[in-house]
Nucleic acid binder design. Structure first.
Lengths: 309, 309
DNA sequence: AATATTAATGAATCTAATTCATATATATGT
DNA sequence: ACATATATATGAATTAGATTCATTAATATT
């Protein structure tokens, strides 16, 4: 236990990630460090305060009372810092501009709406909009000046474009509780041969299940579309077909036994989400704030998502 | 301007020191770093936010609006951290004990009283006391178990004792505004030959002016004592003699032209203040808290004091 | 003008945070 | 129960980046 405090913001960021992920390795990804680095950080904090901060609970790890105190501190402090940094952005006059968002992933409306509300409060002078309609090459819209931000899963390096990684998530098959396939723990391409696939109204090459699982296996199920996630789930529940949706998008419905979810393929079907912008847009303070807030709310709200390098 | 925040607590501590001292070099001493280190810190912050944080004002330096924002943040955040660390100390049960203070420096009552009030609030279970009376060897009291803390200016290394440096301050001669010596900018030993010296009621070897200036010059002025700083200043103002007191102890009276102050010797007469404890006491959380709070309040409240290595 | 004090800056150094490599502990599957 | 996979812990090696050193530039003092 040394005399002057060794605590730094890095520790607070780590502690928050630890609470959100419940695991040292996942937290490490979240803050872009190795598991070892976090273990060392935790150890040094524990030695400094003469208290244990985490408690091993079998496979994973849990915060002690002391750890919770520090997390409470972290939440307060990091929030205050963000607010101050917004204030600094105001001072540097880089406080206005436009943020027109193209959303490739329909389910993302779930978390984007509250985020946009919060953002509007913090940056009243930024023109915030959702660009509606379907776009075959949304990133092109950035170059053409038709949009400022694309939230999508395509990650092609392009000159002048920056892809900010958001998170990785699993896409699960969604079935009615009484569906014949309920018996299987894991579904494979062949299981989809005789079902109707319920999707958002987008082309086939935008649907990961079709693109990466069914098409390679030569399987082409019937398709039926719906605009909203709830609508899709209603169709699934009333046995009109099966769907493939992000695990976090269906969690509530699964928890209430409205539908059931199954893994697709032994490894599962995963998808990555990026926020793409023009290089010049990336340096604007409000874009930086949008990104960190997006990451924070996603990791705090959505279950089962994984940080992305 | 990089994407993720580089801000760390070290920057906030620096910014606070900068505001309190109004100079990079003094702030550097305050946080135990070099002037160069702080210059680099400031530079990197400025580059990160694309804003200037300090503004050179001739010899010294002044915070910009942006800097003030960050200082406001710093005050809040560092206070919250201290509070959390007190909470952690509670958890580790190291929250009770005794803190009996021996005060070698009479003027220190000025800042010690409010400090003790604050401390009592934070550590209700610590028995807080002032050990009264004169003690020829106060540090011995620590070893004998008669006290826990000595606030004094003696710095003899002793086995089992830790001297925590507090600050360095200047001792000024205090005169009535009409005193004949007012004409001199700087007073020397000989100037004290024909005056009455007004001091606290302590032995000669506890009075820096006598010990380091007058005695070596073979000058032994008349002496008259008073218990309280105000009483001494009253005697000085009513021309019963001159006194030698810490610059911060007389600031208010000088500012209101109640008395005038003069430097003693070309270099000035300086004294160092230490908080001495037993080694084992030093590791107690409440002692650490007492120390940092003492430093903070002193540097925030008292003018003209200098950090000590 | 000369001297002293303070801040800024590039290069060198050095501290300490991170990674690497590995061991240990816990869980999962057959 | 044993092998396998997954997590965390830890000592040593590495590395990033913070600090110092040495110097220059700027401002103030005599």
């Amino acid at each position: 236990m040394s005399l002057s405090s060794i605590l730094e913001l890095r520790h607070l960021r780590t502690l928050m990630a630890l609470q959100e992920t419940g695991s040292v390795s996942r937290a490490a990804k979240r803050v872009h460090l190795t598991q070892s680095a976090l273990s060392h950080q935790i150890k040094s904090l524990q030695e400094h305060y003469g208290l244990s901060i985490v408690q091993r609970r079998g496979q994973s790890v849990e915060l002690t009372d002391a750890g919770k105190h520090l997390v409470t501190l972290a939440e307060k402090v990091l929030e205050e810092i963000q607010a101050t940094e917004r204030g600094l952005a105001k001072l540097s006059q880089q406080t206005s501009g436009s943020l027109r968002i193209v959303l490739e992933c329909h389910t993302c409306f779930d978390w984007l709406m509250p985020l946009m509300d919060a953002f509007r409060q913090h940056w009243p002078d930024v023109e915030l909009d959702l660009v509606s309609g379907f776009h075959s090459d949304p990133v092109k819209l950035l170059e053409e000046g038709g949009a400022d931000v694309v939230i999508g899963s395509e990650y092609k390096p392009r000159r002048g474009i920056v892809h900010h990684p958001l998170f990785r998530f699993e896409i699960l098959a969604v079935l009615a509780p009484e569906h014949p396939l309920r018996a299987k723990r894991i579904l494979h391409a062949t299981d989809f041969a005789d079902v109707t696939l319920i999707t958002y109204p987008v082309p086939e090459d935008r649907i990961d299940l079709i693109l990466h699982v069914l098409k390679p296996a030569g399987i082409h199920p019937l398709r039926r579309t719906a605009e909203l996630t709830v609508a899709i789930l209603q169709l699934v529940a009333s046995r009109r077909g099966v769907a493939a949706l992000p695990s976090w998008g269906i969690k509530n419905y699964v928890d209430h036994d409205y539908v059931i979810a199954r893994r697709i393929g032994t490894q599962g079907l995963w998808s990555d989400l990026y926020v793409s912008t023009l290089k010049e847009t990336a340096s604007r303070p409000y874009l930086r704030d949008f990104l960190t807030t997006a990451r924070n709310t996603c990791f705090a709200t959505l279950d089962g998502i994984i940080p992305l390098g």
